[in-house]
C-alpha cells in the first residue's frame, strides 16, 4: 500500500482548526459588540456633569453618578484595608507555618469551596450577620431584654459613631465584599509566596535572621508584585459585584455621598466626616447601573450605558494596572 506523499489528509484538520478559531473569535466578537453597543448608547450622556451630579428620577438628562463613585470608592478602600492584611496573614500561615498539618489541609479545601460559593450567598451572610446582626439589637430582642435599654450604637472619641446593628452602611458592604474576595486573595498570595525559592529563605536563616524577619524582609517583598496583582484583580471583580450589595442594602436611589464628602480634598479638611463615612448609607456604581437599567423610560438606557462606561473604565484601569505590575516584576525577577 503505497500512498502518495501529496495526498490531502490535512483537509479535515483545516476545517477543525477553522471551527476552533471561529469559536475563539466569536467570544471576542461578542465582547466587541457589547462594548460598541454600550458606547453607542452612552455617548450622548457622558459629560463632566454625569460624574458630578446626583441621580435624578424626573429629568434623566440631569442624572449623574457622583453618589455611586464615592460609594464604590469607600467600598474599595475599606475592602482593601480589611481583606489584604487578613489575606496575606492567612497565606503566610498556610505557606510558612503550617506545612501539611491537618488543619492547614482543611483550610485549603475549604478555601476552594468558598471560592465556589455564589456571591449572592455571601450577600445573605452579610445581610444576616452585619446588616441585621441576627436581629439581636432590634426592639424587644435579646439585647434589650438583657440590658434593659435599646442599644443603637457605640460612640467613640473624635465623634466616631458605630451603629448597632451595622445596618445598610458602607461598612456592611465592605465586610461582605471582603469575605467574598478573601479566598481569591489568599490563593493568589499563596502562589506568590510559593514562587519565592526556598534557597532564599535558607540563606537568610543561615545569616542569622529569624523566621519572621525572613518573611518580612525577603519573602513578602519578593512576593509583593504577585500579591498586588492578585489583590487588584480581585478588587476589580469586587467593584462590579452587584448582587451581594443589593442584599446588604446598598440604596438603589440615593442623592448623597457617604458623610457628604463630595470632593477628594474634603477627606483631609473634614476629618470627622472621613472617619464616619464608613458608617453612612451609600450606593455603588453597579447598583446605579442596575437601577437605571430597570427604568422604563428610554432616556435611562443612555444613562445606564454611560454608567457602564464609567464602571468598565475604572475596571479596565485596574486590570491594566495589574498587568503592568505583573510585567514589570517579571522583567526584574528571574530566579
Amino acid at each position: 500500500m503505497s500512498s502518495s506523499l501529496y495526498s490531502n489528509s490535512q483537509t479535515r484538520g483545516r476545517w477543525f482548526e477553522y471551527v476552533c478559531l471561529l469559536a475563539t473569535w466569536s467570544a471576542l466578537f461578542f465582547l466587541a459588540v457589547l462594548l460598541t453597543v454600550i458606547l453607542w448608547q452612552g455617548r450622548g450622556n457622558l459629560s463632566m456633569s454625569f460624574l458630578s451630579n446626583f441621580d435624578d428620577r424626573l429629568s434623566p438628562e440631569k442624572a449623574g453618578m457622583l453618589a455611586g463613585l464615592w460609594g464604590s470608592f469607600w467600598l474599595m478602600i475599606l475592602t482593601f484595608l480589611i481583606s489584604v492584611p487578613v489575606g496575606i496573614g492567612a497565606a503566610i500561615y498556610l505557606e510558612e507555618y503550617s506545612t501539611d498539618s491537618w488543619i492547614a489541609r482543611i483550610i485549603q479545601v475549604n478555601l476552594s469551596n468558598l471560592a465556589g460559593v455564589p456571591s449572592i450567598v455571601y450577600g445573605i451572610l452579610g445581610l444576616t450577620v452585619f446588616v441585621r446582626m441576627f436581629g439581636i439589637f432590634a426592639k424587644g430582642a435579646i439585647i434589650e431584654r438583657m440590658t434593659g435599654n435599646q442599644v443603637e450604637g457605640l460612640f467613640f472619641a473624635f465623634g466616631l459613631n458605630v451603629p448597632l446593628p451595622l445596618g445598610t452602611t458602607v461598612i456592611s458592604g465592605a465586610l461582605t465584599l471582603s469575605l467574598l474576595v478573601l479566598p481569591v486573595i489568599i490563593v493568589a498570595t499563596q502562589e506568590a509566596v510559593r514562587a519565592v525559592p526556598g534557597s532564599i529563605r535558607h540563606a537568610a536563616l543561615a545569616l542569622g535572621a529569624t523566621k519572621w524577619q525572613t518573611i518580612v524582609t525577603l519573602v513578602l517583598p519578593a512576593a509583593m508584585p504577585g500579591i498586588m496583582t492578585g489583590v487588584i484583580l480581585s478588587l476589580s471583580r469586587a467593584i462590579g459585584e452587584t448582587a451581594p450589595l443589593i442584599m446588604v442594602g446598598a440604596s438603589t436611589f440615593l442623592r448623597a455621598t457617604p458623610a457628604d464628602i463630595e470632593y477628594p480634598h474634603e477627606l483631609v479638611t473634614k476629618p470627622r466626616a472621613t472617619i464616619n463615612a464608613p458608617f453612612d448609607e451609600y450606593t455603588a456604581m453597579p447598583i446605579m447601573v442596575y437601577s437605571w437599567a430597570k427604568q422604563a423610560q428610554r432616556e435611562y438606557q443612555g444613562i445606564a450605558s454611560a454608567g457602564i462606561i464609567v464602571l468598565v473604565t475604572v475596571l479596565l484601569t485596574m486590570n491594566g494596572l495589574a498587568i503592568y505590575i505583573r510585567n514589570r516584576s517579571q522583567q526584574h525577577l528571574r530566579w
Binding site: T24, A27, L28, F30, L31, V33, L34, V37, I38, Q41, L233, S236, R237, I239, G240, E241, T242, A243, P286, V289, Y290, A293, Q301, A304, S305, I308, L311, V312, L315, L316, N319, I323
Partner: peptide, 24 residues
C-alpha cells in the same frame, strides 16, 4: 493576545451582561 482578552470577558461585571441581554 487572546488569553488576556478572553479574561476581560470574565471581568465585565455581570450587571452589564444583564443590561446587554435585555437591551440588545
Amino acid at each position: 493576545v487572546i488569553k488576556p482578552t478572553l479574561e476581560l470577558l470574565a471581568g465585565v461585571p455581570t450587571v452589564v451582561y444583564g443590561y446587554f441581554a435585555l437591551m440588545f
